[in-house]
Design a binder for these strands. Structure first.
Lengths: 214, 214
DNA sequence: TCATAAATGTGTACAGTGTACACAATATTA
DNA sequence: TAATATTGTGTACACTGTACACATTTATGA
């Protein structure tokens, strides 16, 4: 058997083989360039070399496809966080390491927004399903969602004595809020088009605020 | 002369009279119910009782209309902030008053997001023009944009000695980031559908973090 | 005052969209 | 092997944004 799964080329088999994956990938690539609104069902099927209605065998409607693509974008966000976490060389100092861990999570978030604005917008677009923060469809290679990665970092911070126990509850939301808001400002807002170095500096100052305020 | 400006009724005059305003208002009302994507040009003109193409005499294209509607939404946000500011009864204590002022700004922001999620999404949608934070089209009755209102509050905080001078620069962005992110979480994210009282409590805790961290 | 020009509306047309419905080809199962 | 489920195709429809030609009203300048 050939085992070849055709992507965008014309296929000679009636069945596609892995259409779900192919459609999803095409949707993500479109969003990478143009955000949520760049995902248009007919274009996705066109790239898969398939009739428009074939998509309906795998997704209930366009909104479903958007949700799936959004999950994938969140997964990519998770890998950005993991990448930043991997840079840390443990110092042995529990406090310092916990701080570095939280900073890495925030920095990964901001880098993702900067490097992949289209995916970032998709991940947090109106129709995205953010309600379930533990869906395996949006985990990185470590098996955790962005939210879970943040939770782990906050646990470490608390254990290191840098986050009062009575403030641990719901701390995810506060930390997340801050970096998310800044990311929006840097992508679409008044901070758009900043030099990379300046954007980085502002990002680090924001994380300073979170560290002090949490 | 009658002086009547027809809104959605059939008009017997060839000219409409105030079509720009009517189209803009209709767009805002659509977004109030369904967010940015609910603004559809043909529906807007339908409500104005006018042919679709008439819109092109007043807006270059749909994107232009979206931008204008977004400005209007930002203006409504400003009035929410002003409403909250008006609730403050000055205590005479400079420090306390400055703090209350900043809290009012943040609280107004969060209340707006909660009360008008459609407008909130419109105001900060991809095609919104947030680059100019001083456009008079997005001011409240006080003549200031949301961003400017926040700036004033931060100035007061600094003058009251509650914000180190070396941290005053760009402080708008940090404060704004935090409340904006939380608003998103409460509208579309995992904090969606929270009881009003709980949402309020979380909001106040977030503002606590900002106060400590700024 | 009156021809002319500018502004603002309408009508028709077109390419593109999401998706419903009937049908065709291939896999799976009894 | 016959019946059935799965997955892809073809046609059709209502709807969208907008280009282009034209009609009607208002403003302008001799």
């Amino acid at each position: 058997m050939t085992g070849e799964i055709p992507k965008t080329l014309k296929r000679e088999t009636y069945r596609h083989g892995d259409l779900y994956r192919t459609l999803l990938d095409a949707a993500v690539e479109l969003a990478r360039k143009g955000g949520k609104d760049a995902i248009v069902l007919r274009e996705v099927t066109r790239q898969a070399g398939v009739a428009p209605n074939a998509a309906y065998r795998h997704f209930a409607d366009l909104k479903s496809l958007l949700r799936a693509a959004s999950m994938a974008a969140q997964a990519e966000l998770a890998t950005y966080m993991e990448k930043e976490l991997a840079k840390i060389t443990p110092s042995g100092d529990k406090v310092e390491d916990a701080r570095a861990q939280l900073r890495a999570v925030g920095t990964g978030y901001l880098h993702f927004a900067q490097a992949e604005p289209g995916l970032f917008r998709l991940a947090f677009s109106e129709h995205a399903d953010l309600s379930n923060a533990t869906d395996p469809a949006s985990t990185g290679s470590g098996g955790l969602t962005p939210f879970q990665i943040l939770s782990v970092a906050l646990d470490a911070l608390m254990e290191a004595g840098q986050l009062p126990k009575e403030r641990r509850e719901a701390a995810e939301f506060f930390a997340w809020s801050a970096v998310h808001g800044l990311a929006m400002l840097q992508i679409d807002g008044p901070l758009r088009g900043l030099e990379a170095a300046q954007a980085e500096a502002i990002g680090q100052r924001l994380i300073d605020m979170v560290e002090r305020g949490l």
